[in-house]
Design a protein around this nucleic acid. Structure first.
Lengths: 224, 224
DNA sequence: CTAGTATTCAAACGTTCGTTTGAAAGGTCG
DNA sequence: CGACCTTTCAAACGAACGTTTGAATACTAG
């Protein structure tokens, strides 16, 4: 043995997951065949079904691998903000705590984190029903926590208005993550390939915080 | 002849396009086969290739049918705002002019407009490259116009910051349109199936206008 | 070494895909 | 009517899909 490279315990599984992240991001779930996936991973065609059971199960495992730690970090950041104080947090701080983990992953170009984040961004609007349900389940606890924190931070805001604004915020984040290399709709937008996550975090947070705290319209129009 | 129903000139084409809008929205492009599509449209399997040439060409025709008039309406609304005045427009008015056509289509439940808008929202992050390019082309002139209008309305804002904020705004709109029936990430959000477009327009515009005009951070951190 | 389990492999399974074909049917106009 | 062009139709094409199989190989424990 001695100098032989140590064989990681789940090398094949990991190689498959990494290849899947990149290919799913580039071509979508249905646009990626098991044959090109296993070829890219350097494993046998049957390996996916042996280790995961099916293509769908692979997709689920892919999301669980990254989403669980990422949302745990979101909770942890919120906990850290709230230690030592009983007062409501600043909305901007809450937003930053939610946004930062995504952008941290986005900076991870060598590991697959970057691939995953982009894939995640475009999966919120995935037609495939089970995938949407899974994502919803994985996000649910985190969303509950952040919703509670925002309700505390903005006691004067009606509940349904807050839900809508959280919806908008989430959409902005999802689109920003997904669109880092997709169609450039706005002329003159030349994202410099490698994002400056810190700068993007500032820009996103400023935008979202302002939107979240937009003046409340006296919605007499036709609201109940 | 007399009482016989008048045969529309392109009935088969229209039936195919309508069925495609609904099925692509529900199951995605790759998830919709020509066989179920033509069955839903009530036409022969070969009709798509006869009238459009290929599945990809059908997708392109589908986007052109709706996107061209929709963006024309956006331009027209902006023109109308600017008639009779040389002054810069209010940012909120510009945003509303851009958002409204989407929401108008969203209210069209009987026609396919609603289906198309949802499909469009999720197509901004479509993996398929040619589709993204097409969408970018169809949007380009409209984006140029709105970018110019916003530059005039916000002369003190740096160009690159404006581009980013337009990016954020577009993402919010896209996600909101696409997610009207997808995963509900935020608990307690029960969109009442039929949207009140007017109310949604107010909420979206208020959020976006506030985000667009968020205070400029003195970005000393690491910006050039 | 041997027995037993875990993993890899080449090959094939049956199905579904988008597209093509050539004949039949519909419509128009001299 | 009859010639001509357009549209529809049933059937089939080859290719690619996700998955399964059973033998071969690698690894581990007694």
């Amino acid at each position: 043995m001695s100098l032989r490279a140590i064989k990681p315990p789940h090398e094949t599984r990991t190689r498959i997951l990494d290849a899947a992240e990149e290919l799913f991001m580039l071509h979508g779930f249905e646009g990626t065949s098991m044959r090109v996936l296993t070829a890219k991973a350097g494993v046998n065609l049957a390996a996916v079904n042996y280790h995961f059971g099916s293509k769908d199960a692979l997709i689920e495992a892919l999301f669980r691998r990254r989403l669980d730690p990422m949302n745990a970090e979101r909770i942890r950041e919120l906990d850290q903000l709230q230690t030592g104080t009983k007062k409501a947090l600043a909305p901007e701080a809450i937003i930053r705590a939610f946004v930062r983990p995504s952008l941290t992953y986005l900076e991870d170009a060598r590991g697959g984190g970057r691939n995953f984040i982009r894939l995640l961004g475009r999966t919120y609007s995935e037609p495939n029903k089970p995938i949407r349900v899974l994502i919803g389940q994985l996000y649910a606890p985190t969303m509950e926590r952040y919703k509670a924190a925002l309700e505390l931070a903005l006691p004067q805001m009606p509940r349904d208005e807050l839900v809508w604004r959280m919806h908008f915020m989430f959409g902005t984040l999802a689109y920003t993550l997904a669109a880092t290399d997709t169609v450039q709709l706005i002329a003159g937008c030349k994202p410099e390939d490698r994002y400056d996550a810190r700068l993007l975090e500032d820009r996103l947070t400023a935008f979202l915080a302002a939107g979240l705290q937009a003046p409340l319209k006296q919605t007499v129009r036709k609201a109940a």
